[in-house]
Computed example of a mutant assay.
Amino acid sequence: MTAAVAKTVLITGASSGIGRATAELFASRGWNVAATMRTPEKSNLGGVSDRIKLFKLDVTCPNSVDRAVQDVIGACGKIDVVVNNAGYGLMGPFEAQTDVQIRRQFECNVFGVMNVIRSVLPHMRDRQEGRIINVGSAAGRMTLPLYSMYSATKWALDGFSEALWLELRQHNIKVKIIEPGMIKTDFFERSREIATKPGLTAYDDFVERVSPNLKAWEEAGAESDVVAHSIWRASTSIWPRLRYQPNATLAVWARGWVPSQLYVRVVRRLFNAW
């Protein structure tokens, strides 16, 4: 009897945090893992398991994406699941954010996801199977002060994912979106950009009041493994579910059911955003 061929997952932004935890989890469960990142030469992830292979991929560069996807197919034979995890956060008052910063945020968090999906879809359509897992955020269903542009990208990703969920079912390609709450990773040190504008001081008091409360929420967040296990369930479960909300179910539920005026007052009180 021929042994079953191991499944393959391609993960973007796998150098650290959620991406790395996901790569290690899938490898430990017998999958081939294509861990992609902008600078694989700086990562030691490949030494964790012989099932993990590193590939260079910059989601903002379509040529880099196409090359990596073909390299993964050549090395592993197929791609069963794509986890779009790469991203970063632009924080701060909207008025302080430049057009370049805003476009760069969308290029990575939204258009980067689209680049990867567009590249891998012909392969999945030909095989008539596959799963696309988009790592969004609870900030794509609710908002927090100073998160305007990060939330804008995650709300866009949520709508895009839901439309694809309907569009790709005819090809037996399942789409899932992971919407975690605060997670304790180096995301907010390594992958956050704080917008400031010389001479703009009108928001200084507000930022000073809100920032410590945001930081406290970040430090109280769940571990990356919590999200990795949600990604595993989304990748393997037969249940036709679109959204997974590790560490955020209650907050997202409240945003949908609590009257908007009350919700705003609660958020302002929690974060001292008066």
Rank of each mutant, 00 (worst) to 15 (best):
R125V: 11
P180W: 00
K154T: 08
F187W: 15
T201W: 06
I117W: 02
M142L: 15
N32V: 00
Q70E: 15
F206M: 14
A202D: 15
A156M: 08
R169M: 08
A156E: 04
R51H: 13
T98P: 01
G159S: 12
T153N: 06
P240M: 11
R38N: 09
L200I: 12
D80T: 08
P212M: 02
L166C: 11
V82H: 04
A222K: 11
S237M: 08
N85Y: 01
I132Q: 01
V267F: 08
F94V: 13
A222E: 07
R169N: 05
W257T: 14
R209P: 12
E129R: 14
R141T: 01
E107Y: 03
D71W: 03
F106V: 09
A21I: 05
W31K: 09
M114V: 15
E129A: 12
A152D: 05
D71K: 12
P62S: 11
C108Y: 01
T8W: 02
P198Y: 11
A273R: 06
M182Y: 10
P122A: 07
R125E: 11
D225S: 15
N109L: 09
G77S: 10
Y244V: 10
R104A: 15
V258A: 06
R192I: 12
G47W: 08
F160I: 14
A21D: 04
T185G: 10
K154C: 10
W31V: 10
R169I: 07
S64M: 10
T98L: 06
F55H: 10
R190P: 00
E24A: 04
E193P: 00
S148L: 05
S16L: 04
N44Y: 02
W257F: 15
E218K: 03
A222L: 12
E179I: 01
V59F: 09
R127C: 07
A75N: 13
A202P: 00
H171P: 00
Q170D: 12
L164Y: 02
R103I: 06
P62E: 09
G181N: 07
D225R: 13
R169Y: 02
S191P: 00
N63C: 01
L90K: 04
H171I: 00
T153Q: 07
L146T: 11
E107G: 03
S211T: 15
V100M: 07
Y244N: 09
A228G: 06
L262R: 08
L242E: 08
E179H: 11
P122W: 04
A220W: 00
E223A: 14
E179R: 01
I238V: 13
D66M: 07
V267M: 14
I52N: 09
V69D: 04
E208P: 00
A251P: 04
R38L: 11
N247W: 01
I102P: 03
S235W: 02
V116M: 09
R190L: 10
R103D: 13
A14M: 08
W253G: 10
G30Y: 06
V69M: 07
V59L: 05
T36C: 13
D58P: 02
V110R: 01
F271N: 03
E24N: 03
R243S: 14
N247L: 02
T36E: 05
